[in-house]
Amino acid sequence: MVLLLAAMVVMVFGNVVLRYLFDTGIDVSEELSRYFFVWLTFIGAVVVGRQNAHLGVETLVSRLGERGRKLCMVLSDLFVIGCCAVFFWGTWQQAEINATNYAPITEISMLWVYGVGFFASIGLGLMAALRILRVLTGRLSDHELRAFAGDYSDDEAHTLRGHLE
């Protein structure tokens, strides 16, 4: 992600400088920076999913007990898996079309751009499935269950202790 972001910054900043100083730009960098942004967004979604940091509404879940929280967690993860399956299927259906469409400037197959749907759907779906498995086998940590309900008090205490030491 850092490399994609750095490349985007270099390409966009370079184009701004070239347009300002020489009234020209590099067309390839415009196209590639757009594609890098797409990949950066989807890779970021998977990374944030791994850290359980996606937006959530904990108003109801925080009022439930342990069993209710686990039920909500499993239900939300089943919903995530369903969405990932639809996303994967849509990417699969479009793959042949995207493989034969080429970018106007770089002439790379658009499957390299839109194929990120495979990565994101598999990554997020596997993480949700593994979390369901941890819930069902009793291996879900108390910290993860509290974080699902919006309780990050352990994180704050740990961070505060780390700063004081």
Results as ranks from 00 to 15, higher is better:
Leu3Val: 15
Leu4Tyr: 06
Val9Ile: 15
Phe13Asp: 06
Gly14Met: 02
Asn15Gly: 01
Val16Gly: 07
Leu18Thr: 11
Tyr20Thr: 15
Asp27Thr: 14
Val28Pro: 00
Ser29Leu: 09
Glu30Leu: 12
Leu32Ala: 07
Ser33Asn: 05
Trp39Pro: 00
Thr41Met: 07
Thr41Leu: 06
Phe42Pro: 05
Ile43Leu: 06
Val47Asn: 02
Gly49Ala: 13
Leu55Val: 15
Leu55Arg: 02
Gly56Ile: 12
Val61Lys: 00
Arg67His: 14
Gly68Ile: 15
Arg69Asp: 01
Leu71Thr: 14
Leu75Pro: 05
Asp77His: 14
Phe79Lys: 02
Val80Phe: 08
Ala85Leu: 13
Phe87Arg: 05
Gly90Thr: 12
Thr91Gln: 03
Gln93Trp: 10
Gln94Cys: 13
Glu96Asp: 15
Ile97Leu: 12
Tyr102Thr: 12
Tyr102Gly: 00
Ser109Met: 06
Ser109Leu: 02
Met110Lys: 12
Tyr114Gly: 03
Phe119Leu: 07
Ile122Ser: 03
Gly125Trp: 04
Arg131Lys: 10
Leu133Pro: 03
Gly138Trp: 03
Gly138Glu: 08
Arg139Glu: 08
Ser141Lys: 06
His143Ile: 09
Arg146Leu: 13
Ala147Phe: 11
Ala149Gly: 10
Ala157Ser: 09
Thr159Cys: 05
Gly162Thr: 08
Gly162Asn: 08
His163Asn: 09
